[in-house]
């Protein structure tokens, strides 16, 4: 196998490519982000280094000494105690992360990972935070998603805009989203206030914008209120997509239209909301190569870190940030993504 390097597709399947083929994939991925997201292209030095990372012979790689960043989690305590089926409670999972895996931070969360669903059990969740904080040294977030879609009938009180829009009821759909965003904001402020007063170090608004620009608006509004109410509470907002979907289309936050925002603008809106860090999400195209996806993600992340005034912590879980769309991401891809995000993307952590 001369000039053939083992790499993968966006679904994790292994493939062999020549260095030239990998370089072509890298250039094409970058071009996609430049064209669609109006990002600046990576420098030739960064492109060369990315190809070098992708073709390193080691199975797993790591950042050079001194380039480490901090690690954060979404769905933190779901990973061991729920998804992996290990019979431990969330406070034990936190301590395993702190003392065994040596995580920099951790997040405590409910299995139904949406703020609306936590409202009925908020006291129990607050007690879990309070108890966990007695034993933990590392910072603990509480996290969930805005998931504004849960406010539509029959689960909630608001008409479903996804049903109204195909009927041509555009104004009604917009009004429904505005109502849902207000309800969602109120619930998140209520729940997160209780978590803050229970001693949470931080709040995570995860997968913000999943229901479009109104969903994003709800997270930004909640962040702004909470950051003023609790100055010592850290707030991080992680995105649903590299592109804020304009389900409403006309919503603005601090004078900036939310629909159509890419990471370089998303990070400015997040900072304007008083949040302390921002997690860009760039979705993986499982039909394209790992090289294409990682290059595309890095181009977006670089554009965000170039303009950011707050730390940028890219999402690099299943199917985002260049990571293949598979539940068990191959560690060769995971570690190359970690390295590239910090060294080329100039991220502050993950």
């Amino acid at each position: 196998m001369n000039d053939k390097y083992f790499t993968r597709m966006g679904d994790g399947e292994g493939v062999w490519m020549s260095k030239e083929q990998i370089r072509e994939e890298v250039l094409a991925g970058m071009e996609d982000a430049v064209t669609k997201g109006k990002s600046q292209p990576m420098s030739s030095g960064d492109l060369d280094y990315l190809v070098e990372i992708l073709t390193m012979p080691e199975k797993n790689v790591s950042v050079e000494r001194g380039h480490e960043g901090i690690t954060t989690y979404d769905a933190g305590t779901l990973k061991m105690a729920v998804r992996s089926g290990i019979p431990i409670d969330s406070s034990t999972a936190l301590l395993i992360h702190e003392r065994v895996l040596c995580s920099d931070t951790m997040e405590i969360c409910n299995t139904d990972y949406s703020y609306k669903q936590i409202k009925n059990i908020v006291s129990e969740e607050a007690m879990a935070i309070e108890r966990a904080q007695m034993n933990c040294i590392m910072p603990i977030f509480y996290g969930a998603m805005p998931n504004m879609g849960l406010y539509t009938k029959p689960d909630g009180p608001v008409d479903n805009w996804s049903e109204l829009l195909p009927q041509g009821k555009v104004l009604e759909a917009m009004e429904a989203q505005e109502k849902a965003a207000a309800l969602c904001t109120n619930d998140m402020v209520y729940i997160c206030s209780i978590m803050a007063e229970a001693g949470a170090c931080g709040i995570q608004f995860d997968t913000a914008g999943a229901s479009g620009d109104a969903d994003m608006l709800a997270a930004l509004q909640a962040s702004k209120i909470l950051s003023q109410k609790y100055p010592d509470l850290s707030i991080t907002i992680g995105m649903a997509n590299e592109f804020t979907l304009g389900m409403h289309g006309r919503l603005k936050f601090e004078g900036e239209k939310l629909a159509g925002q890419y990471p370089a603008k998303q990070v400015k809106s997040v900072a304007a909301a008083g949040a302390h860090s921002y997690g860009p999400v760039i979705n993986t195209n499982s039909s394209r190569s790992f090289a294409w996806n990682l290059s595309r993600s890095l181009t977006y992340v670089q554009e965000a870190t170039r303009v950011a005034t707050i730390p940028v912590l890219p999402n690099v879980g299943m199917g985002v940030g260049g990571i293949p769309l598979t539940n068990t991401s191959p560690t060769d891809c995971t570690s190359r993504t970690s390295k590239a995000m910090l060294e080329i993307g100039k991220a502050d952590g993950l």
């Binding site: 790591s62 901090i70 690690t71 920099d104 931070t105 860090s277 570690s335 970690s338 390295k339």
Partner: peptide, 30 residues
């Protein structure tokens, strides 16, 4: 997957100064 990220790029938590640096990043410091 998360643990691979920590090994490849994380600060190292309380094994090093990861929790301390994280606390300052959480304040908004780069």
């Amino acid at each position: 997957m998360a643990f691979m990220h920590e090994m490849a790029a994380g600060m190292g938590g309380i094994r090093t100064a990861g929790d301390l640096v994280a606390r300052m990043v959480m304040k908004g410091m780069k």
